[in-house]
């Protein structure tokens, strides 16, 4: 099997995630789509790592995971506080920075 297949799969997943960010209105689902994009990048990094025979790609994927975890924590906290003030998790409702 051609190793490029993994890259095609990663590109496909990234595209689906990016479309989801544009299409969906629910902030939580938008956030999940961002996670999907990060995961797709990780897959390509891991495939590159095996393609070139060194572990640098895996290290970068590992850092991506850590950053994604931190991002999820802060992002979900923002969504929860938004939901508290507006009683809605829709990104359309949060078009203004103030209430």
């Amino acid at each position: 099997m051609n190793p490029v297949n993994y890259l095609y799969l990663a590109a496909l997943l990234f595209t689906i995630g990016a479309s989801g960010v544009l299409i969906r209105r629910n902030a939580i689902v938008v956030f999940m789509c961002i996670e999907l994009m990060l995961n797709a990048c990780n897959l390509s990094l891991v495939a590159f790592s095996r393609m070139h025979g060194n572990l640098d790609g895996q290290i970068i994927a590992f850092f991506t995971m850590v950053v994604a975890a931190a991002e999820v924590v802060v992002g979900l906290a923002i969504i929860v506080s938004l939901f508290r003030s507006r009683h809605s998790a829709s990104v359309d409702d949060a078009s203004l920075m103030k209430l």
Partner: peptide, 16 residues
């Protein structure tokens, strides 16, 4: 948005 997504995907996959 869906159209942009598809276009983006086609560009990226063609690039690869």
């Amino acid at each position: 948005a869906a159209l942009c997504g598809i276009g983006f995907g086609v560009l990226m996959i063609a690039g690869i």
